[in-house]
């Protein structure tokens, strides 16, 4: 027990790195995903196709590869080439990747709204933008909460990939201690940390779902 308590200090520091990446990625990728989804359903064909290609690229290659690319290869790309420190590089790769997944969830949510809602809004004189903002998107949020919850929980665990950039997240800290002390206990403690984080997320999403459930029959 004393040993476990002695682990909490360094592992909390690792968990903070994990949480920092998690929150920044979430805050960036949700608005980006919404913008991508709106572009994807746009009637402007080249825009829609371009976003389609982007989503294919982001979903079609490993996140780990994207991480390595942003950190190691991006500096050598002409024009857009920048050398990013490790944590910002991780944020960029995660946000770009998760935005693509969120875009598809949002697109599915928007598509699931009945055509009658658009017609009801149109005959009241609303523009497309007003219809989206006031009628379609508020209903979309309620419907996509379960898949967004899924994606968010996956994100908590995907953050462990940043060990490839030698960032000391929760899992890398745990692995360091395992190798130092020749015991698996740190892995179990790390598992506890992840479970705690996903439990909080589960509560949050449950609460959001309940709040939206009030208008359902």
């Amino acid at each position: 027990m004393e040993y476990v308590i002695s682990l909490l200090g360094p592992m909390t520091a690792g968990a903070l790195v994990t949480l920092k990446l998690f929150f920044i990625t979430l805050v960036l990728s949700i608005p980006m995903g919404l913008a991508l989804a709106l572009m994807r359903i746009s009637r402007i064909k080249p825009l829609s196709s371009l976003v389609g290609a982007y989503i294919w690229l982001m979903r079609g290659t490993p996140l780990m590869l994207q991480l390595l690319f942003v950190y190691f290869a991006l500096p050598f790309v002409p024009v857009i080439g920048v050398r990013l420190p490790d944590f910002p590089a991780a944020v960029v790769a995660f946000a770009l990747n998760y935005a693509a997944y969120f875009a598809e969830i949002f697109r599915a949510g928007i598509k699931s709204i009945d055509r009658g809602q658009y017609e009801g809004a149109k005959v009241l004189g609303m523009t497309y933008a007003q219809t989206m903002r006031r009628i379609v998107l508020p209903q979309m949020w309620a419907r996509i909460l379960p898949p967004v919850s899924n994606e968010t929980i996956t994100l908590v665990k995907d953050t462990s990939l940043i060990y490839v950039l030698a960032l000391n997240d929760l899992l890398r800290v745990a692995r360091g201690v395992v190798q130092r002390d020749f015991t698996f206990t740190p892995f179990i403690v790390a598992g506890g940390f992840y479970l705690g984080m996903t439990l909080v997320l589960t509560w949050v999403f449950q609460h959001l779902e309940n709040r939206h459930a009030k208008y359902d029959a």
């Binding site: 009945d114 009658g116 809602q117 017609e119 009801g120 809004a121 149109k122 005959v123 009241l124 004189g125 523009t127 009628i135 508020p138 209903q139 309620a142 939206h212 208008y215 359902d216």
Partner: peptide, 19 residues
């Protein structure tokens, strides 16, 4: 849109905003 506002419409399926 301006001309459309001269007319109101009632649908078979109501199309009320459920939220």
């Amino acid at each position: 849109r301006k001309i459309g506002r001269k007319m109101g419409m009632v649908f078979q399926s109501f199309n009320l905003f459920p939220h």
